Simulated assay, not measured.
Amino acid sequence: MKRNSLLLTAVVAASVLILTACGEAKGQKSAGGDGETFKPKGNVTMVVPYGAGGGSDMSGRSIAAGLEAVVPGLRINTENRVGGSGAVGYSYFLSKTGDPNYLLPSETALLALPLNTKVAFDYTRFTPIMKVGDDFTLAVVPANSPWTTCADVVNASKSGRVVAGISGVTGLDNVVFTLTEQDTGAKFDRVPFESGEELLAALLGNQIQVASLNPGEVVEQLKAGKLKALCAFSEKRYEYPELKDIPTAKEQGIDVAFAQFRGLIAPGGISDGARKFWIDASRKFIESDKAKQYIASNYLQPNALFGDDFTAYLKENNDMLKKAQGK
């Protein structure tokens, strides 16, 4: 009897260990999901795939600060990884697959890079978290430029060389120049820069003749009279007081309107719990004063989407971009 009792005790103890181990494994597999609570371990890193001072950098830093404000104890460091028109930063982010302590402020390059460059990723390799809004661009020239409309630029390109600066070969500005060429028969001589800040400096320094830049990047120069806006590549005129008098390209006979989205992605392969954590935090951010301030100060068109809805938007936008580029 004593021997049987010892054997029974051993079996029960072994069973408890097995069940405990199974429970721990299940909890690890679904950390932060299926009823578990996920929290970032230590500081989170916001990887910006462009240089400091441009639209993507402003987006990343604003979202980071906003998330910190709505999630107690959250700390996010911003890290710029520049090169390859965004490819270096996105490729580095790809290496963080499965790590929920990394975020990236995404934009049109997420879709355009895989269509134009040999990279190891497309949008399906990441986890879409939030779309903040739409960021249309303005065609801008130095204040002393003889051009007063986008139609003037198109006509000039048909009879001579027009040097257009772009922020990376896969950015929104390159897309709108391509769409303008397709719609009008124009031809632009492009010069790529690594960030909107570098592009702006080149325009102010008369190294290029025209650029397509986001309103938030150029509004101060427009107010100061250093630059002038020829048209907006948007569906309708902006309602912001500083931009409401800028006609759309469509008003000038150029049927081009294409928005750069501003959003947030996490690495692919993260747990359901981590995905839910970042989506919930992003929903709180969108409702915050910091989000409203970011949207207004950067002249975005607010249009928030989260999770699956953002994923569907990316697919639709990707298909549209493929069609625009004949792919």
Rank of each mutant, 00 (worst) to 15 (best):
G269T: 09
P241Q: 06
I265S: 01
E239C: 03
A229Q: 03
P267S: 13
A211K: 01
L264M: 08
A259P: 04
E242S: 07
I246N: 12
R237A: 15
G263Q: 01
A211P: 03
K244N: 13
G253Q: 00
V219F: 14
F233R: 05
P215S: 08
T248P: 07
N206M: 02
E239M: 05
A259V: 05
P247C: 11
K228F: 09
L222K: 02
V256Q: 06
V219Q: 01
V218F: 13
I254V: 15
G225A: 11
N206Y: 10
Y240E: 15
A224Y: 12
E251V: 09
S271R: 04
D255S: 09
A259S: 14
G269Q: 07
N206G: 05
S234G: 13
G225Q: 03
A229H: 04
L222V: 08
E251W: 06
A229S: 14
K236I: 13
G253E: 00
L213G: 02
P247G: 13
E235D: 14
K228S: 04
P241E: 06
Q207I: 08
F261I: 00
P247W: 12
G225N: 02
K226A: 15
F233L: 14
Q221G: 03
Q209W: 01
E217W: 08
N214V: 10
V210F: 04
P241F: 03
I254N: 01
K250G: 07
K226I: 09
L243A: 12
D245N: 15
K228T: 05
I270G: 11
E220H: 11
K223Y: 10
V218E: 05
A211Y: 07
Y240R: 02
G216A: 07
E251M: 09
T248L: 10
A232T: 12
R262I: 14
A257K: 00
L222F: 13
F258G: 00
G263D: 03
G263K: 00
A249N: 03
P215H: 05
L243P: 02
I254C: 03
Q209P: 01
P247A: 12
E235T: 14
Y238H: 12
F261E: 01
E217F: 13
T248A: 10
K250I: 10
K236E: 14
E251Y: 06
R237M: 12
L264S: 06
L264P: 05
A257I: 05
D255H: 03
A266I: 04
I246P: 09
L227F: 14
I254E: 04
P247I: 12
K250T: 13
V210W: 09
I208E: 02
G253Y: 00
N214A: 15
Q260K: 01
I208V: 13
Q207S: 10
A211E: 06
L222P: 02
F233E: 11
E235G: 15
V256W: 01
R262L: 12
G269K: 08
A259W: 04
S234Q: 06
K244Y: 00
K236S: 15
L213K: 00
I246T: 14
K226L: 15
E251N: 03
E220Q: 12
R262Y: 06
R262C: 09
A224R: 00
A266M: 06
L227H: 03
F258A: 04
L230E: 11
V256M: 01
V256T: 08
K226E: 14
G253S: 00
G253H: 04
G263M: 07
F261A: 00
L243S: 11
C231L: 07
G205N: 11
